[in-house]
């Protein structure tokens, strides 16, 4: 059965490695220049996340986390990326991306966000387990990076990918805290699936209307105009 989650043990290191992997993939998402690469990176992040969840399930001896891992792998690692690729093919989306920020500023801001997360999380949780604390810091970083991606990218698809990457951070936080019930993860996962369905419909509608998924088009039809 599972080992102790103490500093220096293998189970700690492995959990840390997987959580860190999710964060590194968030950085990778920030500087991708092609849409298909963004989707693939997102899929990879989901796979690493499901591995992290499975590892936590084994370490914490919590079988319901295996279910979480399975859902994550099936929905976010396989189904959603496949759907995205299909949308890209069907809508003939322009596959090169432009970002509001260059690579270096994005990376710098990302590092700043990670630092901020650590500075916030570590001091406010002194009585929790070491791993929980660090995983929470990692998860908060992933959430913030997802938000950053939503701001810096200009097309609807990358915004949705940013949103779902943000949600990966939430799952990471949920699985690394011992004792979190399955209901939370399940409801978050269902929410994301629904959101993906809605976004898919919106993509088609926006595309129909503007021949582009560029968000600046939406600002012109903001309803109330000055």
């Amino acid at each position: 059965m599972g080992g102790h989650l103490a500093f220096g043990t293998f189970s700690y290191d492995a959990a840390h490695l997987l959580g860190g992997g999710v964060l590194v993939l968030s950085f990778v998402l920030l500087y991708q220049r092609r849409l298909t690469a963004v989707i693939n990176t997102y899929a990879l992040q989901a796979v690493v996340l499901s591995a992290a969840a499975a590892w936590q399930a084994w370490v914490q001896d919590a079988p319901h986390l295996y279910l979480t891992a399975g859902i994550t792998l099936a929905a976010k690692g396989i189904a959603i990326p496949l759907g995205m690729h299909r949308i890209v093919r069907q809508l003939q989306v322009n596959r090169s991306l432009e970002s509001a920020l260059g690579i270096f500023p994005s990376m710098a801001i990302g590092v700043g966000l990670v630092t901020l997360s650590i500075l916030v999380v570590l001091p406010v949780t002194p009585q929790a387990q070491t791993l929980t604390r660090e995983e929470l810091a990692l998860a908060l970083s992933v959430v913030l990076m997802g938000l950053l991606m939503m701001i810096t990218r200009r097309t609807a698809m990358t915004q949705v990918l940013g949103f779902m990457s943000l949600e990966n951070g939430l799952i990471l936080a949920a699985v690394s805290v011992a004792g979190m019930p399955l209901v939370v993860e399940l409801s978050v996962a269902v929410l994301v699936l629904l959101a993906f369905a809605v976004f898919g419909v919106f993509f088609f509608r926006i595309r129909d209307r503007f021949d582009s998924l560029h968000l600046d088009n939406l600002d012109r039809v903001g309803g109330m105009h000055r």
Binding site: A100, L147, M150, I151, L215, L218, D219, M224, R226
Partner: peptide, 9 residues
């Protein structure tokens, strides 16, 4: 009130 989506975010 009339900020763009990205600015609001």
């Amino acid at each position: 009130q009339f900020l763009t989506i990205r600015s609001t975010l």
